[in-house]
Design a protein around this nucleic acid. Structure first.
Lengths: 244, 244
DNA sequence: CGGCTTTTTGAAAACCCTCAATCCATGTGG
DNA sequence: CCACATGGATTGAGGGTTTTCAAAAAGCCG
């Protein structure tokens, strides 16, 4: 029955992740009209200052908290966590600098958000977002685009969890992170999260994740050195199975 | 490596599902202001007539089709299907009368939509939705609420696929359908989709789905008669594991 | 260098999948 | 009206992938 054994585990190197990733890339709704992504809009939404420094492992919002705010990551990395009563965990998303989260809350947040690394978070009142959406149609459109892109991404993860093998999931994860972190030279990925977070994101156990990485190392597809991973053969990670 | 064997399988009784389900129930964004759900809005959006009758198993939109339209189910049931090159399938959603889909398309639809039963579908141009959103703030808000509710629901399915056992998934599915179909007397569910669709929705095989149902039958939690299922002991289906 | 946590590795077990046969419902034709 | 064919659902046996349990290895920090 699989009771979660591995707990939170706030570890991994404290990356600064200075660069504000090009999130939402390429997903325009219909018109190339709104060039300004939601990430940029949020920057100008609130008089700077309504930000909080969050320590590694600390909670930003709790599961089922009333949804008064939504958030933007300024520095660091955040995870969205869903917990079952018996301790099982599912991480539904990792958020990097620039990313906005909590918009899809409804009355209460469906998940807890926790700092994977030390992080700086901007809080924005829902009422402010609503007001801005009514005041500026371009913001409203950016908001819709963002929500659409996010929904699309989550659907992709349904396929991952429902139909990919363990090895395929880990491979997909490495490529996703390589894309999103967009760090330096060809294929270097400094994972900000620990194995336990990876496992809960991929619907696996830490042991399985570790074994998959070991196998990829053996086959020469990657090199592993703790949290630092080097993608040596991108082909070997993506190939056959990907979405038609 | 699990190659999909069970194909589409347009079967199951052709239910009429006359009633327009209370979708999106309870998930207001912040204000109880907008009482009118997106479902109702869509009804008045287009001069009736832009609807199509779709036969069971027929495709409504294809995976990767350019996103010119979004859709509303008027009668029947629709499934959103993601296919991998090797034939593996993931059903990301079932849509009932009143439900709107395709809003989260971006440039192209991420999934194919197919009729589970004979269905009537209303097509609405994206441009019309955008225009209406800019013209009427209440519509824009309903749109945001809808997308938020949908994102929340999909996240719930991430937990299901990532962390629930086969039995728990099937149980959750029965309860979901019982809720959404809202048919007659206590706990009767006439499933409009075949086992293969259920399996691809739950990330399982048809055999496993069948075995789980058999086990629930043995334990007295449900009665099964083909596509008709009777929930005898709701407790036995929901209990321990549910979201904290 | 200890003491801690995380990661890796190993062996055994569990769960779910695969393959294959049977059952059942429906529809057709003699 | 019944034999037969068809397609889905169920059931059984066996195997594979992933999990569980357990221990060793590797990092990190005082």
């Amino acid at each position: 029955m699989r009771i979660a054994r591995d707990m939170p585990c706030p570890q991994a190197p404290t990356l600064s992740l200075g660069h504000t990733g090009p999130l939402q890339t390429g997903t325009l709704w219909r018109e190339p009209a709104a060039e300004k992504g939601l990430s940029a809009w949020f920057g100008s939404l609130v008089p700077a200052g309504n930000t909080a420094r969050i320590e590694r492992g600390q909670e930003i919002v709790g599961q089922d908290d009333p949804a008064l705010f939504c958030f933007q990551v300024q520095e660091g990395v955040v995870r969205c966590v869903h917990r079952l009563e018996d301790g099982r965990r599912q991480v539904s998303e990792f958020l990097l600098p620039g990313d906005v989260f909590g918009l899809d809350a409804g009355a209460t947040h469906a998940f807890a958000a926790e700092a994977v690394t030390e992080a700086t978070i901007r809080k924005v009142r829902f009422s402010a977002v609503e007001a801005e959406a009514e005041a500026d149609p371009r913001f409203a459109q950016a908001l819709r685009q963002h929500m659409a892109a996010q929904a699309k991404a989550i659907r992709g993860r349904l396929v991952l969890l429902g139909r990919l093998t363990a090895a395929e999931r880990v491979a997909a994860f490495l490529l996703e992170m390589n894309d999103r972190l967009g760090q330096g030279p060809l294929g270097q990925v400094d994972l900000p999260m620990c194995r336990s977070d990876m496992a809960d994101y991929l619907g696996l156990t830490i042991e399985t994740v570790s074994r998959c990485l070991a196998e990829m190392k053996r086959s020469g597809a990657i090199a592993v050195k703790g949290a630092r991973i080097l993608i040596r053969n991108r082909r070997a990670l993506a190939p056959e199975a990907m979405l038609h």
